[in-house]
Simulated assay, not measured.
Amino acid sequence: MSNRVAVIGGGSWGTTVAHLAAHNVPTVLWCRDPKTSAAVNEHHTNPRYLDGYKLHSSLRATTNLKKAVAEAEVVVMGVPSAAFRSMLQEVAPHLRPWVPVVSLTKGLERGTRLRMTEIINQVAPAHPAGALTGPNLAKEILTGHAATSVMAMADDTVAIALQKVFATDLFRVYTNDDVIGCELGGTLKNVIALASGMVDGLGAGDNTRAAVITRGLAEMGRLGTAMGGRADTFTGLAGMGDLLATCMSPQSRNRHVGEQLGRGRRAREVVGEMDQVAEGVFTAGVVVELAGEHGVEMPISTEVHSVIEGARTAAEASMVLMGRQARPEPESAGSRRSRLHRAWRFLKRSNR
């Protein structure tokens, strides 16, 4: 794929991916804000989201969606999950035949609970759908630090072609045909990052953070595999790798929100101050619903959701988690099924 790439969304990550692609192919960044578009074209910067960071000199920006998409051989969607479907519906009429559509969004659609590639398959069914995901902090990449990512797509031929579009000397791109696992890894880790931020806000130490990350990874794997992802995906870049970066970095929006919750602030207040979206805030409730449907225990995610909803404080949620009965680690699948079955029978008797 040697032709034009269009990235839809001028936020920090969309801009960074456009910057990466511009190293290899002609790339245009669609921005809603004319000031952002002008800054990219005239000064090679995005002062709103990436102030002080230089972008590739060949990157161009536009506010004309039709022009950006109609000339593209690859379209990249870098918009929040809440706006993903509506934005793609605007994009779809202008797509050339069989153009791949790649999602950068790490979330689930509220209401439908669909992954972004599932939305692509609904809105633009004739186009290969994939996701670029992994431990990718925009400012570190623009600074010139080495990073890795995963191009998740069912069609390996298309994935390998896209791999070459985004890879640079310092940005290594792997491929993975487990699209479900890769998308869920990127989505579920945001909720665990909220928990990691909460314990930081409460003043806990590295031992506590390590416990949250490790047990959070176990939660991600349980739900992810129950929903059709592969276990090895959750121990790779799209799972553990992304989880570590998001839980530990001060650049992480989800970790920041969690830290503020740990300090006693309300989610609505914190989110209202932010210029970008912390997907985990909006995903936590959906994750808890999915866990219930699939019979998967996710105590950390459940407590995070309760704090977001104002049902508990972060300190209370922490005490609830510490008060849970300790079980063998790792717990066998048979033992887990047996325990869940006993719980189900107990609830059934209680509701008679």
Rank of each mutant, 00 (worst) to 15 (best):
S86I: 09
L223W: 10
R312E: 08
E42D: 15
E329I: 12
L261Q: 06
E329K: 07
L88V: 03
A72G: 01
L243E: 00
T62R: 06
V179S: 04
W30Y: 15
A211K: 04
T63Y: 05
G323Q: 09
K189M: 01
A129V: 13
T15I: 03
A61T: 07
P47D: 13
P250Q: 05
L114W: 11
A61P: 09
P128Y: 12
E183W: 11
L347E: 15
V191R: 01
L243W: 02
A195D: 00
L202W: 08
F84D: 01
E183I: 04
W98L: 15
P330T: 10
A131Q: 05
G185F: 11
K164Y: 10
E109D: 04
R230E: 10
T148Q: 10
T27F: 13
T63A: 05
R337K: 15
V277Q: 06
C31Y: 11
A278L: 03
F166K: 01
I119M: 06
F282R: 09
A218V: 13
S306K: 15
S196I: 07
G224I: 12
A146Y: 12
Y49P: 01
G236V: 05
T27H: 10
L88E: 02
M248E: 08
P93Y: 13
E219C: 02
A291M: 14
L347P: 00
G292D: 13
G134T: 06
G10K: 04
N46C: 02
V76F: 05
M220K: 01
L202F: 11
L95D: 03
A152W: 12
E71C: 02
A146I: 09
Y174F: 14
E316Y: 05
A317E: 04
L237Q: 00
G262W: 12
G292V: 08
H127K: 07
G334D: 14
P93N: 12
R222F: 07
L59K: 02
N41V: 12
K139E: 15
A210T: 13
N3F: 10
A39I: 07
T27S: 08
A68R: 08
T187L: 06
T225V: 14
I213G: 01
L104A: 00
H145L: 15
G201H: 08
T16Q: 02
A278Q: 03
S252N: 02
H94V: 03
H305G: 04
V270N: 04
M151H: 03
A61V: 08
G130Y: 12
H19D: 14
N121C: 11
S306T: 07
V101P: 01
E219S: 03
T62A: 08
R110V: 12
A195C: 02
L261G: 02
I192N: 01
G272E: 06
R96N: 12
E73L: 03
S318G: 06
G185A: 09
D275Y: 07
V287F: 14
L261C: 04
G10M: 01
T112W: 06
D178P: 00
T27C: 09
S306F: 11
E183L: 05
P128H: 14
T112F: 06
M298V: 14
V76G: 00
M319G: 04
W13Y: 13
N136G: 04
A167E: 08
E73R: 13
D51E: 14
H341K: 15
W98H: 15
S335F: 15
R337G: 02
A226G: 05
G334H: 14
E73G: 13
